[in-house]
Write a protein that binds this DNA or RNA. Structure first.
Lengths: 230, 230
DNA sequence: AATGGTATGAATGTATACAATTATACCCAA
DNA sequence: TTGGGTATAATTGTATACATTCATACCATT
């Protein structure tokens, strides 16, 4: 009787609705809008060719994501990513990627397993050739496969958000000598999952994040997020 | 020169803006709106005495929180909390509350420590008297103190969201025999923090969540979220 | 010159009007 | 009766108009 209620979950997911939202989000994360910068509804609306209404709706979402702060009757201000936030995110991700790897070990499908293996082969190939752009892209994809394999919409959603959030930092990091090392760690996680060793998978995914963060600190690669004030 | 830019962070945080948002959110979490129910902008607007505009903005936020799903040009549908989601949240919280307790051990202030101790004394008192409402309220407060003590806006925000999310389930659970046991576990966490034993604090907070979940399953207390279909 | 108050402008908050899309009902034909 | 197509109604998407709030500048007073 209630079969046709919300079947079509994937319609238009990003085609029209959310276009404004994603554009502004991207502009904040890419650094176009600086920390503490005030975002004016009309200005952004004009720039994107839309009225204030969709811009305002996007603002409300961005506030919930913590990317901007809206002060009532005053305005919307960019909340720049602080070095402290990046550190916290990596520590939180360490725990959650571990949990995710554990669950992936229990729930990964044949198809996902194969895509993960293929991903690693490709990454190793591009690493040997020095194709940095592809490495970053494949790293992205590896983690997304992992997130999708854990069979938890909650955790998947959470990790994808964090992953997006530190996108800027990650891209720079992977373009360094960490790329190949990261690939090697991915292989370890993949093999643990394939061997159904959940403990090992969790442990390695856990450490993978800690290593990524340590490398970032060591190379001073995340000083683009340095806290100017406060 | 830029001293007066965004000083007043705490103005009106919940006075006017977000009133609609919080009301709808509460109505979903409290079960007023059932799973898969369609939310109509005008209907809710009339009910709250506002126009469609603020309702729409609230919808967009609620979608981001995962409480509703918006299908373009169709409507907004309540995404009921699934038993699977509750389980996932408790496992995720187990990891994150552990991390939080660890960080709290390192960063808790004197004032917060005192409030936490007072909270536990009060909870034990009300438990001995059988004041169930107060126990639920104090449990709420205990966790919020813990979240605020970890000195991480990221983690604090995350945990408060989850805490809110499973509010319905928690209230029922704490009204059972679990109340006093939960209090005892709180005491353990508090004492570990006070003794600056981060490992122990993490371990206990970790276990605290697992116990809460196990108790919930054992008593069948969370079948209000049972998955009717899918 | 410094202070305080008012006026003005600019931005946000909200309501409403209009456009576009979708669902429903009805009719007609096979 | 069934199937399809069109018309209509209802709902969402967007733009705009109006209301309110806040910041700035100017002016008057001391």
């Amino acid at each position: 009787m209630e079969s046709n209620e919300l079947k079509q979950e994937e319609i238009d997911k990003y085609s029209l609705r959310g276009r404004v939202f994603h554009k502004i989000r991207e502009d904040i994360l890419s650094g176009k809008y600086k920390d503490h910068e005030e975002l004016k509804e009309v200005a952004i609306g004009n720039e994107l060719g839309v009225s204030r209404t969709p811009v305002r709706e996007a603002f409300r979402q961005l506030e919930l994501e913590g990317l901007i702060q809206i002060i009532p009757n005053r305005g919307a201000y960019v909340t720049g990513i602080k070095a402290k936030d990046v550190k916290d995110i990596y520590m939180i991700r360490s725990k959650l990627e571990g949990l995710c790897a554990r669950w992936a070990t229990e729930h990964i499908t044949q198809e996902q397993m194969e895509e993960m293996e293929e991903n690693i082969y490709l990454a190793e190939f591009h690493a040997s050739k020095g194709h940095m752009d592809q490495i970053a892209e494949l790293d992205n994809r590896f983690h997304n496969i992992l997130y999708e394999s854990c069979d938890s919409k909650m955790l998947e959603h959470l990790l994808k958000d964090f992953h997006q959030y530190v996108w800027r930092v990650r891209q720079k990091t992977l373009a360094s000598a960490r790329g190949p090392v990261s690939n090697h760690e991915h292989r370890g996680i993949m093999e643990a999952i394939k061997a159904h060793d959940a403990d090992q998978a969790e442990k390695l995914a856990n450490q993978h994040m800690i290593n990524a963060y340590d490398n970032m600190v060591k190379n001073g690669l995340y000083d683009i997020y340095k806290d100017e004030e406060e």
